[in-house]
Design a protein around this nucleic acid. Structure first.
Length: 594
RNA sequence: GGGGGUGUAGCUCAGUUGGUUAGAGCGAUCGCCUGUCACGCGAUAGGUCGAGGGUUCGAGUCCCUUCACUCCCGCCA
């Protein structure tokens, strides 16, 4: 027998009564009755109640012991009488009568309570992460994360994907996020970059003939944090396949995600076959390329209505004439909602920086009319037309926004969430996956008018390569896709461009010369000219998958040792200053920005 | 880089219109308690009210500056 334990703290049941056992664990909780002391002993697996009477010579010392001290106890398993059974814990039918004990790890006064459901400040949680991680909820989240990852590994292996590691020290790339840089001692003045994703490597793996690759890959991006975005590093299930079309990738990922979500959550999947929504349609109907499809509300464009003579909503009409659009959200059967419901949404919209949301409700007496502050501007005929266009009926309400396309997408997307939340239209007990497809290859920067890649520059453009009209780059669509679940962007992927000439052409549109490509992507562009298979892949975010499964809103709740918003590790004190001689060795000198 | 929120005991928080010695629960320490499982009871200790400045007879409270944490915008191919 191991000297620390004969059983773990979640192992003993009624059938062990009478046995002599050795348990080790943390003192989770004490209940001191003066002549009788209960100690809840906790380890990774569970809790066992231990008990000691005053007659025992160890009583005095145990009575004084700090919570979270690690102890080893020797004792006898005893039955609990019927009225003292604790159904909350799995070992609740028995308890262990302590005969002897030993302190294995002392504990100072705690800076935060471990045994408590209380929320407390992030700063202290991160500084004492090892204590925080002992707490039930987050402990279970981290275990879930581990299980999800090994489940995914297993599924991928079953599908005959091979797992490979790719370099962590690689080269800086000109596109995308800021790189984390690592100075090279042997090459003074030169830097490695940590990979933002193993993008080029996984393509090189395909060129090397391995056919199907995956990796639980660390990715590093030096960008600002959000609740669902760790600063610094995060993990992707990176995968790539040769000789595939878009649908082949979809098939693999759909199966994997459906299996994973069914395995680890009791929530319903709204779609087993994920709907495909084009980028363009998503931006119109949901105002976003990461729509929450649990939300039944859709956005409609009704700009045309405002060029009718029988509509006298002059403010909107004037804006429409100067190029604005009008989009609306219909809420079903809301005619009896109080005035405050509508006004709150209008007020909320103003707080979001929009000029507000106009609204009216469609009513009918003898004829159809619109009720509400702007109702009087609409004729019966125009209302019929609106109802036809938006699928609305008498008793429904319509919220209207007018503006330029970008502003409209932003405010209607926010309004869609806000209104659905107010009306409690979102079923929190479901997962709604979808594919967003047909992303444009390029986009135009509104300020600089410069054309740049809208997503991944290595994506394959759609259509017959011979016939692509490069003079209209903004019309070129790519085999580029995202997976979205409940409004969370889980991953993006693409069929890659494996044809060097085509890549030079596309990069030239974004302002890169052949020389730039040869220099910046030398490994890959070179490889593509030695017989590259058509290939494609995707990279679902592991952290976000676990977030959804654990029902957490913050990525730090599913990350073992996260950094804070300023990308500092408060426990390890990273980043830290370094010695002058280290700088010297790296041929670096500091010039700190003020 | 910008905007919002928060900051009071080890932890979670209350603190009225600016007014006596800044409070509670948990935790800590000490004492009592033989069936608890958030055990119970009593006592004690514990405070740079984030920091600095200002207004005032008087500031935790009002004003200015600043710092920390957090949420959001920008950013994240």
């Amino acid at each position: 027998m191991n000297k620390y334990r004969s059983h773990n703290c979640n192992e003993l049941r009624k059938d062990a009564v009478g046995k002599d056992v050795v348990l080790s664990g943390w003192v989770n909780k004490k209940r001191d009755h003066g002549n009788l002391l209960f100690i809840d002993l906790r380890d990774n697996y569970g809790i066992t109640q231990c008990i000691i009477q005053k007659e025992n010579s160890n009583f005095v010392e145990l009575e004084k012991i700090q919570l979270e001290t690690v102890i080893r106890i020797e004792g006898k398993v005893v039955n609990r009488s019927k009225d003292t059974i604790n159904k909350e814990i799995q070992t609740g039918g028995i308890e262990v009568e302590i005969q002897n004990f030993k302190i294995l790890g002392k504990c100072k006064e705690l800076p935060l309570p471990v045994f408590s459901d209380q929320e407390y400040a992030e700063e202290i949680r991160l500084k004492y992460r090892f204590l925080d991680l002992r707490r039930k909820k987050i402990h279970e989240n981290i275990i879930l994360r581990s299980k999800v990852i090994s489940f995914i590994r297993n599924e991928m292996s079953k599908l005959e994907f091979l797992e490979f590691q790719t370099p962590i020290l690689t080269s800086s790339s000109p596109e995308g996020a800021r790189d984390f840089l690592v100075p090279s001692r042997l090459n003074p003045g030169k830097f490695y970059a940590l990979p933002q994703a193993p993008q080029q490597f996984k393509q090189l793996i395909m060129v090397s003939g391995f056919d199907k690759y995956f990796q639980i890959a660390p990715c590093f991006r030096d960008e600002d944090a959000r609740a669902d975005r760790s600063p610094g590093e995060f993990y992707q299930l990176d995968l790539e396949m040769s000789f595939v079309e878009q649908d082949d990738v979809f098939k693999v990922v759909e199966k994997l995600l459906v299996n994973t979500f069914k395995e680890f959550s009791n929530k319903k999947l709204l779609f087993n076959k994920f709907p495909k929504i084009t980028f363009k349609e998503a931006m119109l109907k949901y105002g976003s390329d990461k729509p929450d499809l649990r939300n039944p509300l859709v956005i409609n464009d009704i700009t045309e209505i405002f060029s009718r003579d029988d509509v006298s909503f002059e403010i909107f009409k004037k804006l429409v004439k100067s190029g604005s659009n009008v989009r609306c959200i219909v809420t079903k059967k809301t005619k009896d909602k109080p005035r405050s419901f509508f006004d709150n949404i209008d007020k909320w919209a103003k707080e979001q920086g929009a000029s507000g949301l106009a609204y009216f409700t469609i009513e009918k007496d003898k004829e159809v009319y619109a009720k509400g502050p702007v109702g009087k501007f609409f004729s019966e005929k125009s209302l019929n037309e609106i109802m036809k266009k938006t699928g609305s009926e008498v008793g429904d309400s319509i919220f209207l926004a007018c503006g330029k396309k970008n502003e409209l997408e932003k405010i209607t997307s926010l309004a869609r969430d806000k209104i659905a939340n107010d009306l409690e239209l979102i079923d929190k007990n479901t997962f709604a996956f979808c594919w967003i497809v047909d992303y444009p290859m390029f986009e135009k920067d509104e300020v600089t008018n410069k054309i740049s890649f809208s997503h991944n520059p290595f994506s394959m453009p759609q259509g017959d390569i011979e016939k692509i009209n490069f003079d209209k780059p903004l019309d070129i669509l790519a085999y580029q896709y995202d997976i979205v679940c409940n409004g969370v962007e889980l991953s993006s992927g693409a069929i890659r461009n494996h044809i060097p000439e085509l890549m030079y052409k596309l990069f030239s549109i974004a302002g890169y010369s052949k020389g730039d490509i040869d220099e910046k992507f030398s490994g890959m562009i070179n490889a593509l000219s030695y017989g590259a298979p058509p290939h494609g892949g995707i990279a679902p975010g592991i952290d976000r998958i676990v977030m959804l499964l654990a029902n957490e809103k913050n990525i730090r709740e599913v990350t073992m040792f996260p950094m804070n918003q300023n990308a500092e590790d408060l426990m390890m004190n990273a980043p830290s200053e370094i010695k002058e001689e280290q700088l010297k060795e790296l041929s670096l000198s500091l010039k700190i920005k003020k």
